[in-house]
Each structure stands twice: as C-alpha cells, then as structure tokens.
C-alpha cells in the first residue's frame, strides 16, 4: 500500500471503488457549498483497504443556518440524492438534526448505501470535526476524523467488527500515529483495558 503523511494530510493515490466515488459525489456537494464535514466510523477503514462492505457512511456536518441548509438540500436533490427519513429541509433540520438525530441520504432509487448525517452534539464529535484530517486521493480529497480518535472510538464501540476495524487501522498506520494520543482517547472513553487488542 502506498501512502504518505504530510502534516495533517494523508496522500493516498489509489484506484477508486464505486463506494469511494459515491462518497466523493456527496462530499463534493458539501465542499462546493463550503460546509465543514468529517467522515467517521466504518467507511474510514474501508477507504484504507479493510475487506468489508458497509450500508452507511457516517458523517458530521457543522451546524447550518436555515438558508444554508436549504441550499444544501436542493443541491443534494440536484445531484440525485434524496433524504430517506425526512420529507422537507425544514423537517430534516428542525426535527432531526437539531435534536441530535441523523438524516439519511441515498441515491434517488436506492436505500443503501446511504449517508448518515448528524450535527456534532458532544464534545468528542465537535473535536472530531475541528481536528479532521484531509485524505488526498489523486485529484480528489475528503476529510476523515483523526485516526487516533477513530481507533480508540472503535475500541469503545466494541463489537467484533469495530475491534477488527481498530486493529486494521492501528496495524496499518502505527508507525505514523501518536500512540500516546490513542492511549489518552482510550482512557477518556474508559477502554484502556481494550488497548491490548491492538497488540502494541
């Protein structure tokens, strides 16, 4: 696997899968509208080669004004995305996002895969958005959460799949990551006892 760390960026030139293209199609809408976002959870290890599929791509977006959110709603519609659990921009924003609930977008004739979009409502999710990292894939790029946090959070979630994701990311990037930061996050999340799974 060829990749390089450059400051806060990871340069990672690889052929795109259909899932990567689907993600970039959605994130390019956010980019175009100047909406800050961060991709978290399952897609991150998949982007970096994990051998499993996923039904949804989780991301946080910054809190938006009604006008900006409405612009995003229309832009998503114009790019063939539809929201599958809210029927209007107003409902999506006021009854879902602002209550800490996720809205989901899929391509118009599909249900999966879909994007699970939330506002950051905890200190950890805010940190994740504020400290995102840029992954440059050829002429494209996207933002994911800091890998140290991603690994510790996967340990916290704790299902077999999550632990495998954590091991995948750690084994792949351990020479480039800050072990103490993983430890600190694990401590904050109360999962230091699971660090042994990483065999460090």
């Amino acid at each position: 696997m060829e990749f390089s760390f450059k400051g806060k960026n990871i340069v990672f030139n690889k052929p795109l899968t259909n899932l990567d293209k689907f993600v970039l199609k959605f994130t390019s809408i956010l980019e175009r509208l100047g909406i800050r976002y961060v991709i978290i959870s399952g897609y991150v290890p998949i982007l970096f080669g994990r051998s499993r599929d996923t039904e949804d791509v989780d991301l946080f977006i910054e809190q938006l004004s009604a006008q900006k959110f409405s612009g995003f709603w229309e832009a998503a519609k114009n790019e063939d995305f539809r929201c599958i659990n809210a029927y209007s921009a107003k409902q999506a924003k006021e009854d879902f996002l602002e209550y800490g609930l996720a809205i989901r977008f899929a391509l118009h004739d599909r249900f999966i895969p879909n994007f699970e979009v939330k506002y950051p409502k905890t200190r950890l999710s805010e940190y994740s958005l504020d400290n995102r990292i840029k992954v440059i894939i050829g002429e494209h790029y996207l933002y994911t959460s800091k890998l140290e946090l991603q690994i510790a959070f996967k340990l916290y979630l704790g299902t077999d799949k999550d632990i495998e994701d954590a091991v995948h990311l750690w084994d792949l990037f351990k020479d480039n990551l800050d072990k103490q930061t993983v430890k600190d996050f694990a401590e904050d999340l109360g999962v230091t006892h699971k660090l042994g799974k990483l065999k460090w």
Partner: peptide, 10 residues
Amino acid sequence: YVEWLKKTPN
C-alpha cells in the same frame, strides 16, 4: 491481511 496490504501496490 494488513501485512499483505502494506507490501501490495494500491
């Protein structure tokens, strides 16, 4: 699998 990934071109 990760060991294999590391030494395998993208």
